[in-house]
């Protein structure tokens, strides 16, 4: 193995180089550092998953009566009202996908640790990378609703869960970014 690709700009560099010749980005292939950084972010993400689901992400106040709604609570309510498809979509997007992402990240971390080479894992990594920020939809929807609905009679205020949810997604993105796709399969010939 004589060459490696810079992840920032795509330039080809010599394998032993530490700084990209073109964009001056960091191109070190450090397995140990990648694993420990990624694992630290992943554990933080899992930690924030708990308050994100326990606390309401949205507070609705109607005539001075405040009512909080958690993600699970919202799903159950939708289910009871008979909105099965919407309930299932929200359950999948907000509850299940974060958990799946945790498992996939653990799996990829293990793959990097073992140094196993399979192109399927690189594909999995790229799917993770693209999917990552889309979980923020929940947080942004809360932002839009809060920005729009503040009437005298009804108003929407974000809950503690929204902050935790945003932090959880942020840490999952950072965890995925800390993993180097070149360590999973690109460098395996």
């Amino acid at each position: 193995m004589k060459y490696k690709r810079c992840l920032h700009c795509g330039a080809v560099n010599y394998y032993q180089d530490e700084v990209c010749r073109r964009c001056e980005g960091d191109i070190r292939l450090d397995k140990k550092r990648a694993i420990s950084t990624s694992l630290a972010f992943l554990l933080s993400a899992i930690f924030f998953y708990i308050p994100a689901n326990l606390f309401p992400i949205l507070n609705t106040s109607k005539f001075a009566q405040t009512q909080g709604s958690t993600i699970i609570g919202g799903v159950i309510e939708l289910w009871k009202e008979g909105d099965y498809p919407v309930a299932i979509i929200i359950f999948l997007a907000s509850v299940l996908i974060p958990i799946i992402k945790f498992f996939v990240l653990f799996y990829l971390l293990y793959a990097v640790y073992k140094g196993s080479c399979e192109s399927g894992k690189v594909k999995l990594y790229h799917i993770m990378e693209i999917m990552g920020p889309w979980s923020l939809i929940d947080v942004f929807v809360v932002m839009v609703l809060v920005g729009l609905i503040h009437f005298n009679s009804v108003s929407v205020i974000p809950g503690v869960g929204a902050t935790s949810f945003a932090l959880m997604v942020l840490f999952t993105i950072l965890s995925a970014k800390a993993l180097d796709p070149r360590l999973i399969g690109e460098e395996c010939e």
Binding site: Y3, R5, V12, V122, K123, E186, C188
Partner: peptide, 14 residues
């Protein structure tokens, strides 16, 4: 010359 090389971002072929 490094400028005349490309590495595939998906599979790493030179």
């Amino acid at each position: 010359d490094l400028k005349n090389l490309v590495i595939c971002p998906r599979c790493g072929s030179l």
